[in-house]
Design a protein around this nucleic acid. Structure first.
Lengths: 250, 250
DNA sequence: ATGAATTTGTCCGTATGTATG
DNA sequence: CCATACATACGGACAAATTCA
């Protein structure tokens, strides 16, 4: 479990240790009590000086992950990665509902624009036809975990941005347009380093990892109603692909 | 487009620039010819010294993303990611079959060991019962793309390692034990920075990203037959979740 | 073919950040 | 707190390879 740290690859040791502690917490490093091992033990475990561990803990405390108290120890404020399901019936709040006290999905912007090749293909319309773009931010317990960009056919969903903004729910917004249920048709997943926009919008450190999903959602008749690109903070969530019950089509 | 870089975050400027260049390439920074702007221009664009840009380019060249030639310029080595399907009927070679000339899956080790909590839970046996662990390496056109660790109930699949080793196919190996077909029951996906083992086994550069999937495969009756942890080189593959035809269970 | 312009490669020195003990 | 060693970042100057008028 002792991560192999290296000097000279552009990431300071204290930040590698910080990432290691964050990952370790998900694997029970802090135990049931949520209490981190003493700095000296962490220093030995990571093979670095205690000063370096202190710098790492200081950074994590500043991020809100840890909380140090003189004489008592260092305690974890957020436990483990959230598990985000990407099965065919994905709903943001429903999926995270039992893992966080407070989940929210708020709109942070919208626009009408001509569709790009990918969006048009996904929605089954001609390239360049007007689509509605909706930008939203998903939070769990106040911490940003996902940043989505969704597109809708402007001819069919005029006003959906306002509806989503007022309800804070994509399911409710789609229901307002007669879409009673929808399913995820396909999802592609890739991982990359955080760009400047990611560090700003998801509150990430440079060099952090972002999981990117590209999805198409269809109504019950199989007609595409929405496509989206979502960026997740990889250190805060893991994705879970839920399979349907055995015996269905392949 | 000018990313605003910051000092003192524990991430070296040259690494932030490297991430910026990598992101920029995806947005057409290198143009049609795949040629990067001159170092001096990049330096001005990122607001850093040319030496810092050179350090970033050097790192990307070491990763295999870029290639510099004195007097000529710096060029992008265009390699598009392989799409790896993780639907319910995933097969390594079948999934990649049309994207690479030559795909192979070779066994690189095996052992009998007591099952850990996760493996036992996944396979539906008691913790500590003996399981067979099979280590394998997946390649496409000679380049390693995935590194899997699989576990089987030793009571049911004694000798499967030898069968997999000789056939090079997990499907064939399972068929030898009467498993005519199998389906993926669940998959969790997370992303993290490459550890030392990853850089060695998948031939990655330090700081690269690894996609980790944890999966359970069941036979047609729903009985678990195999569980596995697979590490993918995130810069060589993207995962694709294939949905079944609409109308199945949810 | 020659020379100028362009672009990458290498050297110097110096200041600051990081890591150890 | 201190001292020491190494990594990072900057600035300038020049060499080497390529391109093109």
């Amino acid at each position: 479990m002792t991560a192999h740290l290296q000097r000279g690859l552009g990431v300071a040791l204290w930040r590698q240790v910080a990432d290691g502690i964050r990952a370790g917490i998900a694997n029970g490093l802090a135990g049931e009590a949520g209490r981190l091992p003493p700095e000296a033990e962490l220093a030995q475990r990571f093979g670095v000086n205690r000063h370096t561990v202190r710098a790492a803990i200081s950074a994590l405390a500043h991020e809100g992950v840890l909380e140090s108290q003189q004489g008592r120890g260092t305690y974890v404020r957020r436990r483990q990665r959230l598990v985000y399901p990407i099965g065919e019936r994905t709903r943001f709040s429903a999926g995270l509902g039992d893992q966080a006290r407070d989940t929210s999905s708020e709109m942070v912007g919208t626009a009408r624009e001509p569709s790009t090749l990918w969006v048009a293909t996904a929605l089954g319309i001609e390239t360049g036809k007007t689509v509605i773009r909706v930008e939203s931010l998903g939070k769990a317990d106040g911490v940003p975990v996902s940043r989505s960009t969704s597109w809708f056919d402007a001819r069919l969903f005029d006003g959906i941005a306002e509806l989503f903004s007022s309800t804070g729910s994509m399911t409710a917004a789609l229901a307002g347009f007669g879409v009673r249920d929808y399913r995820r048709a396909s999802t592609s997943i890739e991982a990359r380093h955080a760009e400047e926009a990611d560090t700003r919008e998801l509150n990430l450190a440079p060099g952090a990892i972002v999981l990117v999903t590209r999805a198409v959602n269809c109504d019950l008749s199989g007609q595409p109603v929405q496509c989206s690109v979502t960026r997740f903070a990889a250190d805060r969530v893991e994705l879970s692909v839920e399979a349907p019950a055995p015996g269905s089509s392949g």
